[in-house]
Every structure is written in structure tokens, then in C-alpha cells.
Amino acid sequence: MLNHFFEGAGPIEIVAPVVVALILIALISLLKEPARQKFSAVFVAGAGAAYLSGGFGIWEFAFCALITFLAFRGLDSYRAIAIAWLLHTVWDFFHHLYGNPIIPFASTSSFGCAICDPVLALWYAFGAPSAWRLFKRARPEMSTAGAASDPHSNRRSVEGGRG
């Protein structure tokens, strides 16, 4: 079954979805909390409805209902959003093997989605921290001269306490 899953997938079909996930993480990181969490819940709800005509009949509606419930829970819980993305990964896997691809004219689109989604799920499992924080440089420490000019650096002695 796994051999069939990777059939027709070259390096670009594996690397590109990871890059897409990292771009999404970077863009969503631009949102401040709580907007980041609210947007993420709505985003995963939309992903849950992507396969409504995907070839699995009534199961498509059951899956959509489950993801909608998790998206609602995701308004207050990043864990629920992570679980929803992991379930979507499983749904992508089955669609790639047996159903219709998520993008009808791109036969490996469900495969790509199955690669992208767990990267998103991992990020959400860690609480969706801002990716931009990783790139911010730590503020340089003030020198002794800078500390002397800082009005708060000598607060205890000014207020009558010991320095």
C-alpha cells in the first residue's frame, strides 16, 4: 500500500508541500493572538470541507462534521486544531489511494496535502508559536555606560534602598 502511495512522486512532490507548510506557518505567524488561533480554527474547518465531493459518499459528510467539531474546539485549543490536521492527513492518504484528488486536475494533490498537513499539525501541537520569534535577534545587553544613563537601573538607591 505504501509503495502505491509514493508511486509517481518525485522529490518535488515531497519537498514542495513542506515548503508550502512553512510558508503558511510564516504567514499565519504574522497574526497576533488571539486572531492567529481564531483564523487557524476557521482555516482547518475549510480544509475539512475540501473533499465533500471526493468519492467516499456519506463518509465525506461524517468527516466534515468531525472536522467542524474540532475546528469549533480549536477556537480555544490548539490541540484540537492539530488533531484536525492529523485527521485530514489520513483523509488525504485515502483520497490519494482510492478517492478523488483534492485538486481535480492535479493527480498528486492529495499526496502533497498528506505531506503538508502533518507539518502544520506539529506546529499547532506546539501551540502555534510565532515563526518570526525565531528570527528576531536578542536585544544586545546595555553596556555599563548605558546602564548609568538608564533611569530605572538605579531605582533602589534613588528610592532610599541599598544599591
Rank of each mutant, 00 (worst) to 15 (best):
L30T: 12
K32V: 05
R36Q: 11
Q37T: 07
Q37G: 11
F39M: 13
S40H: 08
S40D: 02
A41N: 04
A45E: 00
A45H: 00
A50F: 05
A50H: 01
A50W: 06
Y51P: 10
G54P: 05
G54Y: 07
G55M: 04
G55N: 07
F56M: 03
G57P: 04
E60A: 13
A62M: 11
F63G: 05
L66D: 00
L66A: 15
T68P: 00
T68Q: 00
F69L: 15
F72K: 06
R73P: 01
S77F: 03
I81E: 04
I81T: 15
I83A: 15
A84R: 03
W85P: 03
L86Y: 08
H88T: 12
H88F: 10
W91F: 10
D92F: 11
F94T: 08
H96F: 04
L97R: 11
Y98E: 12
Y98R: 12
G99T: 09
N100V: 14
I102R: 02
P104C: 05
P104S: 15
F105H: 06
F105R: 10
A106D: 07
S107E: 15
S109D: 09
S109Q: 07
S110C: 05
G112E: 09
C116M: 15
D117T: 07
V119C: 05
V119I: 13
L122R: 02
Y124R: 11
F126W: 09
G127A: 10
G127M: 04
S130Q: 01
R133Y: 00
L134D: 00
L134Q: 09
L134A: 13
F135H: 01
K136W: 01
R139Y: 04
P140Q: 11
P140R: 13
